[in-house]
Simulated assay, not measured.
Amino acid sequence: MPPPVLPAPLHNAPQDNGPSGSDARRVLRSVALILAQHEIRSVRRWFEEFDRDILLAILLGEIALHNVGALQHGLARRGHNGNGHDEADSEDVLAEAFMRKMNPCNAYSIAAATGLPRETVRRKIARLIEMGWIVRNGNGHLYITESALAQFGALLSSSALCELLETADRLRALIEGPAA
């Protein structure tokens, strides 16, 4: 395995007046520790948010990224599916017009994306539907609901986002070192 590539400020620093190899390794260890601390806090938060079932968080994330990733990249579907209508009887579902713009996915594509067994994915999807965070239309296509977007959008825009930005600032300060 090749050694990790140092961040540009560490990699490009002249050896005589920049960080030595041991200083660079110390900084990288500190960066790794800060990232690990941040990730563990995030995983704990998601673990609790999803009734202590982390697979639910992973599956909802995959479905949401698949759905809204098309919107972010301008690849939203045009038109409609199958018979022209997305069937849904929950009042908590994204508006049909918005769903048509989303990229649909199904249990098979989510199983392939996650590497999880299809039966596990089907069982967890049923739980996410019970929780009101995804909906399955008549074609078996899966969509994230408005309530899930509101719930996790609020979570991400609250303390989690502040924590992420603070972590990024700490890492940047570590990598760039003291100002000259």
Score class of each variant (00 low, 15 high):
Ala107Tyr: 00
Ile144Arg: 00
Asn67Lys: 10
Ala154Gln: 13
Asp16Ile: 09
Ala112Val: 14
Glu166Tyr: 07
Glu49Ala: 01
Arg123Ile: 02
Asp53Val: 02
Gly74Asp: 00
His80Ile: 03
Tyr143Ala: 00
Asn67Phe: 03
Ala168Leu: 08
Leu35Ile: 11
Ala111Cys: 04
Gly132Asn: 04
Ala179Asp: 09
Arg122Pro: 00
Ile125Leu: 15
Ala97Asn: 15
Leu55Gln: 04
Glu49Leu: 02
Val121Leu: 07
Gln37Ser: 06
Gly18Phe: 02
Leu71Arg: 10
Leu55Pro: 01
Glu87Tyr: 10
Ala32Cys: 13
Val93Phe: 09
Phe47Glu: 02
Tyr108Asp: 12
Arg26Val: 02
Gly132Thr: 01
Gly153Tyr: 04
Leu171Cys: 07
Leu56Ala: 08
Phe98Thr: 15
Thr167Pro: 00
Ala111His: 10
Trp46Leu: 12
Arg172Cys: 07
Ala150Met: 11
His66Lys: 11
Arg44Ala: 04
Val43Glu: 02
Leu56Met: 08
Ala70Leu: 05
Asn103Ser: 15
Ser147Asp: 08
Asn67Ala: 07
Leu164Trp: 13
Pro2Thr: 11
Asp23Ile: 05
Arg25Glu: 13
Gly69Phe: 04
Val68His: 13
Leu35Asp: 07
Arg78Thr: 13
Ala32Pro: 05
Asp51Ile: 00
Arg172His: 14
Ser90Cys: 02
Ala111Gly: 10
Arg172Leu: 08
Asp16Leu: 12
Ala8Phe: 12
Pro178Tyr: 12
Pro7Arg: 11
Leu55Phe: 02
Thr114Gly: 03
Asp92Glu: 09
Val27His: 02
Ala154Trp: 08
Ile144Cys: 01
Pro2Met: 05
Ile58Asn: 00
Asn139Ile: 02
Ala126Thr: 13
Ala126Gln: 12
Trp46Glu: 08
Asp53Phe: 02
Ala57Val: 04
Pro19Leu: 06
Ala150Glu: 11
Phe152Met: 04
Ile134Phe: 06
Leu94Met: 15
Arg122Trp: 02
Glu96Val: 14
Gly18Cys: 06
Gly84Ala: 06
Asp53Ile: 03
Pro19Asn: 04
Arg29Thr: 12
Ala112Arg: 15
Ala180Tyr: 11
Gly153Phe: 01
Tyr108Ala: 11
Asn67Arg: 10
Leu10Cys: 01
Ser147Phe: 05
Arg44Leu: 05
Glu49Trp: 00
Ala32Gln: 15
Trp46Thr: 03
Gln15Ala: 09
Glu130Phe: 05
Leu6Asn: 09
Glu48Leu: 05
Gly61Cys: 10
Pro3His: 06
Gly82Asn: 11
Gln15Arg: 12
Glu163Cys: 03
Glu176Asn: 15
Leu142Met: 06
Arg118Thr: 10
Ala13Lys: 06
Met102Ser: 09
Ile54Arg: 03
Ser20His: 07
Gly79Val: 07
His66Ser: 11
Arg127Glu: 04
Ala8Ile: 11
